[in-house]
Simulated assay, not measured.
Amino acid sequence: MVGYVEDSDLAEMPQVPLTLEGSSVLHQMFHFDWTAWKKLAVEERGAIAAEFAALLARWESGANPGDPTVPPNQSALFSMLGHKGDLMLIHFRDTFEALNAVELELAQTGINAFLTQTTSYVSIVEMGLYESTEKIYAPLLEKGLQPGTVEWATGIEDGLSRTRAALTPRLYPAIPAAKYNCFYPMDRKRGEQVNWYTEPISDRRVMMHEHGMVGRRYAETVRQIITGSIGMDDWEWGVDLFAEDPLTFKKLIYEMRFDKVSAVYASFGQFFLSVRVPAANAGHWLEGKLE
């Protein structure tokens, strides 16, 4: 295949796929203290609700609304189904410092007294470049460049810069406005029986291509954002799915269970299903209504 080295050269090829990173991401899940909330006077509840709605409206709009040259810096509020929490906030920012600022800002609001964080997830938008990696590595190897050298690093960056420019909208995405969100963390297995990280990069590329083809069949109904979290949180990746029909999540994930990447090499954490609450409806939610 054009762009890949011959089998005899595979031993020389680095086995780590290249990645591109974008927005820093924080998921926060909370229980809400309804008992304490209902004990407040109506006027006090109204003031806290108005403050919370104003904060969400500012976060929803992004730091630089209307400027396509500036990556979106947005947050979105979701009402969670089930016992794992009541509210989830998803934050996309340029930096981890900006995410920390979001946490601190929320902590200073009146609503914070009624929120107990049940869990959180820190990650960064990631695009794995299995298809591009070998195409970038191959000409460098053919030139006799050695991995780890300055020349090799320069060649890698030259190859990535072109890809990065083309993929900027996907690396710094706006939060989709879909009604439902499904979030879950996951790992690739590295146990005694199977180990994703010891498979040749060429084999992993083929399996990831097959995996990706399943997702493409749902591209019209599901928006998927993958975030990397190795060294940042307890799992290796986080997956956000956004759709208007939650049944689509079940169909997509069920079908993916049958491809080799998921069936053999994947481990999954908890799944979190939630319904979008626009900032304009935050006050309604605090009254026990979605709208």
Rank of each mutant, 00 (worst) to 15 (best):
V194F: 12
E220C: 02
P139I: 12
E44H: 14
L286D: 04
S75V: 09
V70K: 13
D67V: 10
S23T: 07
T168G: 00
S24V: 11
V277F: 00
M80P: 02
G228Y: 08
T198E: 05
G238H: 07
T118P: 07
S274I: 06
A165N: 05
R45A: 05
I225Y: 06
D240M: 08
Y254H: 08
T109R: 09
G46V: 05
M256N: 05
H27Y: 07
V25T: 15
G228Q: 08
N281V: 00
H209N: 09
Q193M: 05
A36Y: 11
Q15I: 09
M13L: 15
S120F: 11
T248R: 11
F183Q: 01
Q108R: 15
P278I: 04
D86Q: 03
I225V: 15
Q28F: 05
S61F: 09
R205L: 06
V150Y: 06
E103D: 15
Q15F: 11
V239G: 01
S23H: 10
H27W: 10
P71Q: 07
R205F: 08
R205H: 05
R257E: 06
Y180R: 03
I225E: 02
E255P: 00
R170T: 09
F32M: 05
G148K: 04
A243M: 10
F272P: 01
G283R: 07
F271D: 10
W235I: 02
D259E: 12
I253Y: 00
G85C: 02
E255K: 01
Q270G: 13
P185K: 03
A113P: 02
Q193G: 00
G283T: 05
A41D: 15
P65H: 15
D240T: 01
Q74E: 12
R223I: 15
E103L: 14
I253N: 04
M232R: 06
E199A: 04
F92L: 08
W237Y: 12
A98L: 14
S123V: 02
W152H: 09
I225A: 00
M80W: 03
R58Q: 15
F249N: 03
L241C: 11
W59D: 04
A54H: 10
Y137Q: 02
L171P: 04
P72Q: 15
A98C: 12
H27F: 07
D187V: 03
E43H: 13
A11E: 15
I175D: 03
C182D: 08
G85N: 04
T248H: 12
W59H: 07
M186I: 01
V122M: 14
M88D: 00
K135H: 10
L290I: 13
M13G: 06
K143G: 00
Q74V: 12
A177I: 11
I156H: 06
L89R: 00
W152F: 12
A282V: 06
E126W: 05
D240A: 03
G144M: 07
F114G: 01
L241V: 03
Y254S: 12
V125W: 11
G238P: 08
K38S: 10
K289T: 01
H27Q: 07
F30H: 06
N73Y: 03
Q146E: 14
P139M: 03
M208E: 05
L18Q: 09
G82M: 07
I136Y: 01
K289V: 02
E244S: 12
S274L: 10
E287C: 10
G128W: 10
T35C: 12
A53T: 13
F258R: 06
D158A: 13
H284E: 14
E134A: 14
E210D: 13
